[in-house]
Amino acid sequence: MEKDVIIKFDRVSYSYEEGGDYAVNDVNLDIYKGEFTAVLGHNGSGKSTLAKLTNALLLPVAGSVFVRGMDTAREEFETQIRQSVGMVFQNPDNQIVSTIVEDDVAFGPENLGVPPEEIRRRVDDALKTVGMYEYKGHEPHRLSGGQKQRVAIAGVIAMRTECIVFDEPTAMLDPKGRQEVFRAIKSLNKDFNITVILITHFMDEAVFADRVIVMDDGYVRLDGSPREVFKRVKSLRDMGLDVPKPLQLALLLKKEGIDLGDEILTNEDFIKEFLNYSGRNNVNT
């Protein structure tokens, strides 16, 4: 089956100052419907710039970005593009505009001119999707960071976007908030088939993606499944990135002659391979 392309980067470059260094450099990229893509890279690698180029918050200085075939540089498509690709940012406090949770979620669809009864339905659905329905009458500033971030996500879902770009959505949250928000993001993708682009520093989030893109110096350096990408330990470390802890441990053991393979990303993988290994080992001895 042919894959359905939502966002297309065609030789895209961007620089913040005329004649300055490129923050994004000659990037070609297709993002497919239903895919969960994680984007990794150190600070200043260009990943947030890449995110902002996806829905016309920034426009390329060279090349073109297409959302559902619409060129983001053409103003007449702007509303449609924003309706197709939504964004959630790092700081939940900067994204809340209303004094009541449900009003905040309604803000996006209201601006799109959606009829009131339809808005009602969308707001309720969106809040249920992120598990915040019972807080619909609450004041956002009394919620925890994780709850606020889920309200922000509901606001994007209520616009019925088919793709959401998350720019380090869990960076400012405590472990509990991080877990809540990450669970909500996974569910959007798996249960509601929303295309997800997740920009993150957390390797333990990236291992759950279908696809991992690594950026460095504005270039896309690696692009593949988590297993393919995290095998490139040396390149990752050279780019100032870590590999997931279970894989780090497996690599240390390998140096001691205990080879668990290089397909280990999660704790579950590690335990499985360790069981296999010790099983084999016992038979041999």
């Binding site: 441990l249 240390l252 053991l253 001691e256 205990i258 360790f274 010790s278 080992n281 016992n282 001895t285």
Partner: peptide
């Protein structure tokens, strides 16, 4: 992570002796 490695190596050694 270094302590973890040591603990796993020691576990494997113990298993080999059993």
């Amino acid at each position: 992570i270094e302590e973890a490695k040591a603990a796993l190596l020691s576990l494997l050694r113990r298993q080999a002796h059993d």
